[in-house]
Simulated assay, not measured.
Amino acid sequence: MVDEPSDIEQQIINARFQLMLTNKINGSFALDVEFSVPSEGVTAIFGESGSGKTTLLRCIAGLQKSNPAFLSFNGEVWQDRAIFKATHRRSIGYVFQEPSLFEHLTVMGNLSYAIKRASNKLNNTFYSQVIDVMGINDLLGQGTNQLSGGEKQRVAIARALLLQPKLLLMDEPLASLDVKRKLEILPYLEKLRASFGIPVFYVTHSVDEIMRLADRVIILEAGKLVNQGNVSELFSNINFPVQSRDDIGIVLDCNILEVDEQWQLMKVAFNGGQLWLPKRRDELSNSQCRLRILASDISVTLEAQRDTSILNQLPAEVIETVPEETWATTLLKVKTGDTILLARITNKSLSQLALSSGKKVWIQVKSAAIIR
Results as ranks from 00 to 15, higher is better:
D3A: 06
P5C: 09
D7W: 12
Q11K: 15
I12R: 08
A15S: 09
R16L: 04
T22V: 03
I25Y: 10
N26R: 10
G27V: 07
F29I: 12
F29Y: 11
L31C: 06
D32C: 10
D32V: 06
V33P: 06
V33G: 02
A44F: 03
F46V: 00
T54R: 01
L56C: 05
L56V: 01
L57R: 05
C59L: 02
Q64C: 08
S66V: 01
P68C: 03
F70V: 07
F73R: 13
E76S: 06
T87D: 15
R89C: 04
I92L: 15
Y94W: 02
L105I: 09
T106R: 02
V107D: 11
M108Y: 10
N110S: 11
L111Q: 10
L111I: 09
K116V: 04
R117S: 12
N120E: 14
N123A: 03
T125W: 08
I131E: 08
I136M: 14
I136P: 14
N137E: 13
D138F: 13
G141H: 01
T144C: 15
G149S: 15
G149K: 09
G150N: 07
G150K: 11
R154W: 04
V155N: 05
L168F: 08
V179T: 12
K180L: 04
I185F: 04
P187I: 00
K191G: 02
R193T: 10
A194I: 13
G197L: 12
V200I: 15
T204Y: 09
A214G: 08
D215S: 02
G223M: 00
G223Q: 01
K224T: 07
N227A: 13
N230A: 11
S232M: 14
E233N: 04
L234V: 10
F235L: 08
S236G: 13
V242M: 10
V242W: 01
Q243K: 07
D246C: 02
D247L: 02
I250L: 10
D253I: 09
N255E: 15
D260W: 14
E261Y: 09
Q262S: 09
W263T: 10
Q264W: 12
L265H: 13
K267R: 15
K267G: 11
N271D: 13
P278E: 12
E283T: 13
Q288I: 14
R292P: 02
A295M: 04
R306K: 11
D307T: 11
S309Q: 10
V318T: 05
E320I: 04
V322S: 01
W327T: 13
T329R: 11
V334H: 00
T336N: 06
D338H: 13
T339F: 05
T346I: 09
N347S: 05
N347F: 06
K348Y: 11
S351P: 03
S351F: 09
A354N: 15
L355F: 03
K359W: 00
K359I: 04
K366S: 14
I371A: 05
